[in-house]
Design a protein around this nucleic acid. Structure first.
Lengths: 231, 231
DNA sequence: GTAAAGTGACCGACGGTCGGTCTTTCGGAA
DNA sequence: TTCCGAAAGACCGACCGTCGGTCACTTTAC
């Protein structure tokens, strides 16, 4: 096979791209290193020149995803005019619109990531997202505490707990995905939406805010994402 | 090798016992099926006669652990004289004393289960525990709601969220384990204890209770468990 | 007799290694 | 300034050991 040489960074990202596509299509365990190198068009040795182990792909991919996600809300995080509550709601609104904009892609990825055999992949993505979001959310909560708006002892711990709440709906999301296309589809989406609203109230309370201060889902959001179809 | 025949149930439990010991000693990935059958004293075919896959060991072990744990608090759950808050606090007090009684064993298991490479094992154990505890906690919360003591929209979702809070301290526990034996040991234990108290307050608030209604850790509990040594 | 329990040699796939090749880069002699 | 050669490192692909899992068969219990 012809040898094509690229810069280490380019090649690394190419490998990450290929692996990410495969992981979101088949899951982590069911994707082999041979699959990845076939997709990227590289040799086994080349792969292991850039990555110490298959496992490292997970770290690379999740770190990249988390980094990109936070970059897309930078302006909201840095806007000095916003109160902590506004910043938090603005941040979540932006996250929702990002998801809606790419809804079919997200939906397709969900189909795979929420399958039970991909639990590890799910938790890795979550952990990476938490690692990146924690300092960000900690800052917002600290601001809210300073403003006297939030009642919280330790902003950092509060941030970590709140970020972990997402994971509590893993099973509920998985059940909803399973229900898609069946007679229970409608009820399942409704139940999931209710659940997200409940989670929002839980966050309100953890922060010492009145119920309903935070908008975690808007009407129709859950349905829009869940019913999105890949192009 | 001589052939020893046992009832399916006995053999199944023997295999589970052996696998559990190995998983808590080396972790899931680093324990091979050959290790398990060597420990139990059974052949490969014999193993696969009782278990469809290595993965099934996880389900079997975690289900057993969760079942046993709930059996040990049955009396508190069934005591009709208790208010919801008393039941909840009693349940947690019992859980603590169970952990203290077997502190060295728990501590040794923690050492393994909280290692990053055993993330899957951790989440499996957690998921099994949640599956068993959810209906139990749902019942208590529903009672509290009926009594007018708890302010919660959906007891089931509340239960699931509260049970998931445990997982939010996974990294903090891991960090504390790493700090054991170093100069930061004392500070790390203190920080972890504070964190647990914070979590207790988060639960209070989710249930609509005044801060401090629930006792999630007593003074010295965290230190006692973390410093316990295997006999 | 037959169904379940148990055996262990064997298999294929997989993650990872290793010896070596090819390309790029760059300091210094001509 | 040009050219050379050697070090660096990107890349190759055959190969390896391990591991989860299978299968044809034997033994035991009822």
């Amino acid at each position: 096979m012809p040898r094509i040489v690229k810069s280490a960074d380019d090649r690394r990202n190419e490998i990450l791209d290929g692996a990410q596509a495969l992981f979101f299509e088949r899951g982590y365990e069911r994707t082999t290193v041979n699959d990845v190198i076939a997709k990227v068009g590289i040799s086994k040795g080349g792969f292991y020149h850039h990555f110490k182990a298959k496992e490292d792909l997970l770290e690379g991919i999740t770190a990249r995803l988390a980094r990109d996600a936070v970059a897309r809300v930078r302006d909201i995080l840095d806007d000095p005019a916003l109160s902590a509550l506004e910043r938090l709601n603005g941040f979540m609104a932006r996250s929702r619109s990002m998801k809606l904009a790419d809804a079919p892609k997200f939906r397709a990825a969900f189909d795979v990531v929420f399958r039970p055999e991909n639990l590890l992949l799910y938790h890795r993505i979550n952990a990476a997202s938490i690692a990146v979001m924690r300092p960000v959310l900690t800052g917002i909560i600290a601001q809210g505490k300073a403003e006297g708006a939030f009642t919280v002892a330790d902003p950092e711990v509060a941030a970590e707990i709140i970020l972990h709440l997402n994971a509590s709906s893993h099973d509920a999301v998985a059940r909803t995905i399973d229900a898609m296309g069946t007679a229970e589809e409608d009820a399942a989406i409704e139940a999931l939406d209710q659940r997200f609203q409940f989670q929002g109230i839980a966050i309100d309370r953890i922060l010492g805010l009145p119920d309903g201060s935070l908008t975690i889902v808007e009407p129709g959001f859950t349905r829009a994402v869940m019913t999105a179809r890949q192009a």
